[in-house]
């Protein structure tokens, strides 16, 4: 039952990926290790396309990964799995919030989770870098694009399109 497994895996991601779309990357990388649903290289394509299409990145990546695994229904099931924990948790919190109370436990747990999540993303970045930074040209492009991203702060689409052109022109 691939659909049940997809739903369960993305449900877990929805429950533990705290802090937004990019945070789901290490979890998706973990799935690439665990199952043969998609390769790490395909994951990088999914990240780029999810950043360049409308909609929240996390949702886009879940739909894409689900589609790669099990077609259209796979995409839908993975997305619903990702969304369900949010729905349940927020409805529970909303009840307290509107009664003027605050979710104290999560706020304190977050003190430890935030730095841990950064370590997760950094390590995922390292694993993916080992796949795509294979010669000095690609390392140079990575350094220059990182500098431009930090300096100009344009939307990711711009860099992704530029990189596609560079890839075609220099036959990377």
């Amino acid at each position: 039952m691939i659909y049940a497994l997809l739903f369960w895996e993305f449900f877990k991601i929805g429950l533990t990926a705290i802090g937004g779309g990019m945070v789901t990357i290490p979890f998706l990388l973990d799935l690439a290790d665990k199952y043969d649903w998609y390769t790490k290289g395909e994951l990088m394509d999914m990240i780029a396309i999810s950043e360049s299409t409308p909609g929240p990145i996390g949702v886009n990546m879940a739909t894409y990964a689900g589609y790669n695994t099990a077609g259209i229904w796979g995409g839908i099931v993975a997305t619903l799995g990702l969304v369900l924990p949010s729905l349940v948790v927020i409805i529970l919190i909303a009840k307290y919030l509107f009664a003027k109370e605050e979710g104290g436990f999560l706020r304190q747990a977050l003190f430890g989770i935030r730095p841990a999540v950064l370590a997760l993303i950094l390590f995922a970045g390292w694993e993916l870098a080992r796949l795509s930074l294979i010669n000095w040209q690609s390392v140079l492009i990575a350094i220059v694009s990182f500098g431009l991203i930090r300096w100009l702060k344009w939307h990711p689409i711009v860099y992704i399109c530029l990189a596609a052109v560079i890839g075609i022109v220099f036959e990377l």
Binding site: I25, D45, I47, A48, L128, I141, S145, Y159, I168, F170
Partner: peptide, 23 residues
Amino acid sequence: IHAFAGIRIVVVALILDAVVRLW
């Protein structure tokens, strides 16, 4: 194939940028 070879390089830079922003 060539386009995505280029794109995959920038994805690494984008991930690193996310880490710096969230730090």
